[in-house]
Design a protein around this nucleic acid. Structure first.
Lengths: 337, 337
DNA sequence: AACATCTTGTCAATCGATTGCAAAAAGTGT
DNA sequence: ACACTTTTTGCAATCGATTGACAAGATGTT
């Protein structure tokens, strides 16, 4: 039942464990005779030898592990970004592959703190947070003194971290401009919880354009408790309660938009005739709806690639002069608006 | 920049590292005087000492880590099961908390093999697979000789693993019975890829009841390339091409069902008047639709709890006489059927 | 006072791989 | 054959926490 370890393997081959170690790692290939090297690799493969990475981590001080904080594992965009980041991290065949440690915070600061401590105890080489809220500033700064911390998707106001973000404000502005061009005079936002910068920025960008184009937001703004379709559905009553009624709605993400749409259908309202809707994220869902949803395409690829690069460079050299970037999303107009 | 380790902490306090270790763990075999213990804990807290878990793992041979294989991180039900399993694993305050290592297989056997090797190299205490396909049998059995392997959600035919499953066959049967009771004579299944036992069993249960109730399946069966709404949407043409037309559809999950529904709307068909639909999983989505979706509720809580228990017991005692269980789902009839 | 018992703490080995240093082996040029 | 570089291998320390064995001190019993 005991695992085969390097010592035994070396013994079996009549060489030193040091030689085995060097034969199996690529970077020091030239340090071991090609013949020996091949013999050792063969034997290791045949015997099913698998190095103990906890031991290697302890010795090297590098775990080839990156901790990822995500607020909600059910969010398609987050998941897509995580996938893409790791595709980029793994694509470098020169570097050893990196194992992600994924943890869900549910936007609870206590959970976040605990999870970060776990990450550090497990000696991650870096932390990527897709879940940052203002409340996490201190703990993230703490962590950053030990390992590189990279922010993706969500920024933290007033704190400087290497980051890869979407220009949510521009996204919000695009939607407002679109509404203006279609002649809407009265509009409304269904906003996600203002816990993270994301929704605040979308709201801001939208409102700025509305103001400059003298479009009225009415009711001023509606907050969904969570950025889910269930919460979105519940907002319709509030939306329709005011007079004059808005003719177009900017839902801060596609799930909220779907909620509103279904609530409308339930009442016999038609989209876009009675109420135009634009979402955010360009999820799978937005494409398959019978009335395809207009939405803002999230620059998943760019954000992920940059986040991956930041992480890779910062791990290689903690004093790397990083550049935080903001990627511009793009409006996709479909039938719903 | 160097982390504080136990040796330094002990030095600072004028005690041995062994004492520190025992003071911080709840070692029962060996006692530490309450006063010392408190003093050490205070100091450790104040100094921000965080034990290095890779070192502890190496020494103990236990990582307090469990590897989770999931085929698709975008699947709400899988995610919910993962969350619930870990809620159960963490709930035991007696045991130290367990860190999940989550990995996505996308149902590719090569990826699965690689990921399992990574898990073992990182010395997980157990593996939970929610992603098992027939192709993974060998590698899973291999892994099982090293650590406990628990199957959840998906079984593997002809292989015995401790498992916590949903009785998909019963679920399929429920839907067929429901259709029979509503007087449907011609029905159809939109089946997910028959890669995993899940969809095969749903199909089987459904077909058995149809046969016994002399309900016709027509067209015989339709396979979506993936269990997503986009794929579901694409199946409608095939569904409507036959004559006589089916009057009710069993979609193997809610995403497929949504795809079909949206395709129907697009064509001006009404649900349930023109075509009744039942999905599977009882996802968030099914509840918020304007025509709420009839669906089969997945026994997430039971499956997760049992999977968690299996893992916990098997880690504690690898020779634990486990019991695999099959949990019965329940039909939820809503407006779509 | 002598002895057993129980607490509390220290010592040192250990988990398995990596790596600086030095020794051995092989290769090169004269 | 000799002095030399270069390549290949071995030795042993090391990463940080845990734990069995043991010692010193405290407490109790007769």
């Amino acid at each position: 039942m005991a695992r085969l370890n390097m010592r035994e393997l070396a013994l079996k081959l009549g060489v030193d464990r040091a030689t085995v170690s060097r034969a199996l790692s690529n970077d020091k290939a030239h340090l071991v005779a090609p013949a020996t090297r091949e013999r050792i690799r063969q034997a290791a493969g045949a015997a099913g030898y698998r190095p103990d990475l906890t031991a290697a981590t302890l010795r090297r001080g590098r775990s080839h592990t990156v901790g990822i904080l995500v607020s909600d594992l059910g969010n398609e965009t987050f998941i897509e970004v995580i996938r893409t980041i790791f595709r980029h991290l793994d694509a470098r065949s020169d570097a050893p592959s990196i194992t992600p440690l994924i943890a869900e915070t549910l936007d609870q600061p206590d959970a976040t703190r605990r999870l970060i401590h776990t990450f550090l105890s497990r000696r991650v080489d870096a932390i990527i947070s897709l879940a940052s809220t203002e409340a996490d500033t201190a703990i993230l700064q703490d962590a950053a003194r030990e390992v590189p911390v990279v922010l993706a998707i969500r920024a933290i106001a007033g704190a400087v971290f290497p980051s890869a973000l979407c220009d949510d404000r521009a996204g919000g502005a695009m939607v407002a401009t679109h509404f203006a061009e279609r002649g809407h005079k009265i509009v409304c936002q269904v906003q996600g919880p203002p816990l993270s910068a994301t929704f605040k920025n979308r709201a801001l960008g939208f409102s700025e354009v509305c103001a400059s184009r003298s479009i009225v937001e009415m009711p001023q703004r509606i907050f969904a408790e969570t950025a889910t379709s269930a919460a979105g559905k519940r907002t319709l009553d509030a939306l329709l309660a005011v007079s004059p009624r808005p003719t177009a709605i900017f839902a801060h993400n596609d799930a909220l938009a779907l909620g509103v749409i279904e609530a409308m259908r339930h009442r016999g309202l038609r989209c876009p005739e009675d109420l135009a809707i634009v979402g955010f994220n360009n999820t799978q869902l937005s494409r398959i709806l019978a009335v395809p949803l207009s939405t803002v395409d999230y620059p998943v690829e760019e954000v992920s690639r940059h986040a991956g690069e930041l992480v890779r460079n910062l791990i290689a050299d903690p004093s790397y002069r990083f550049e935080s970037r903001l990627f511009t999303p793009s409006l996709i107009v479909r039938a719903s608006s």
